[in-house]
């Protein structure tokens, strides 16, 4: 009951923010259509719809970090969290209440991206459903990262770090915009030890029905998701105690 009330509030705060909707849903859609238009004129295998849609879907999830971190940072700065810490809500209610409602939003965003992909020629197969399901561990990573950043940073810092830095890192180091082999060297090595490229390759493998190829990408994603959740819970509880 308590968790439900708090979760409902989290969802309403995010869905009623026009910037959230604009960036979370609108921006990935614009990118899919724009890059597909480029592909139609100058064919690049990277921008073929089977390859592009999973990439943009993962890129869109970086906005979940921004939503989650901004909400928590705002709640800290406005003292709403301080008020709620004096109520019977428990630490578990706060952590689940901030993370769980964003999961269906992330899934809905992925569904919208795949619908756009279908409109642009992505073949309708059951693997699209699996691809949406495999978005869950990727989403957990991005949402937990939001909880972590929201617990550590102020609203302005969240805007800079999650809004600008993370979205750019996700874009550059995921192999969505350009083939990482083209850059190679240290850049590729760094990209390969971060989760973004693995999340994209995981989605591409699932969408392509190439289930053997989901490994080791799934391990990378799960490992980062678990680490992000553990760090997020630790730092959220720490700021809670510091109140």
């Amino acid at each position: 009951m308590r968790l439900l009330a708090f979760s409902g509030r989290t969802a309403k705060e995010i869905l009623r923010d026009p910037l959230s909707l604009g960036f979370g849903l609108g921006f990935p859609l614009v990118l899919i259509f724009l890059l597909s238009a480029i592909q139609a004129n100058i064919p690049v295998s990277l921008f073929e719809i089977q390859s592009l849609t999973p990439g943009i879907t993962v890129f869109g999830l970086s906005f979940m970090t921004l939503f989650s971190a901004t909400l928590i940072a705002k709640d800290r700065e406005s003292a709403l969290l301080q008020r709620l810490y004096t109520t019977p809500l428990t630490a578990r209610d706060f952590i689940f209440g901030y993370t769980l409602p964003i999961l269906p939003i992330a899934a809905a965003q992925s569904v919208v991206c795949y619908i756009a992909g279908i409109a642009l020629g992505l073949p309708v197969t059951v693997t699209i459903v699996y691809a949406v399901l495999f978005i869950i561990p990727v989403s957990l990573f991005f949402i937990a990262l939001g909880l972590l950043c929201g617990s550590l940073l102020g609203v302005k810092q969240v805007g800079g770090i999650c809004g600008a830095l993370l979205t750019n890192l996700t874009a550059w180091l995921s192999g969505v915009w350009f083939d990482l082999d083209l850059v190679g060297g240290i850049f590729k090595k760094i990209a390969n030890v971060l989760p973004f490229v693995h999340a994209v390759e995981l989605e591409r493998a699932v969408l392509g029905g190439n289930y053997v190829a989901i490994f080791p990408h799934l391990y990378w994603v799960l490992g980062y998701a678990i680490a992000a959740i553990a760090l997020a819970v630790y730092f959220f509880l720490r700021q809670m105690r510091r109140q």
Binding site: A5, F6, G8, E13, S78, L80, Q82, T87
Partner: peptide
């Protein structure tokens, strides 16, 4: 500080606290 949920209506803010108190 004004500790209210900004994107919730006044009624929803009151209902949120009711929900939190079970």
């Amino acid at each position: 500080e004004t500790a209210v949920a900004p994107n919730l209506t006044v009624k929803e803010n009151l209902e949120l606290m009711c929900g939190i108190h079970g």
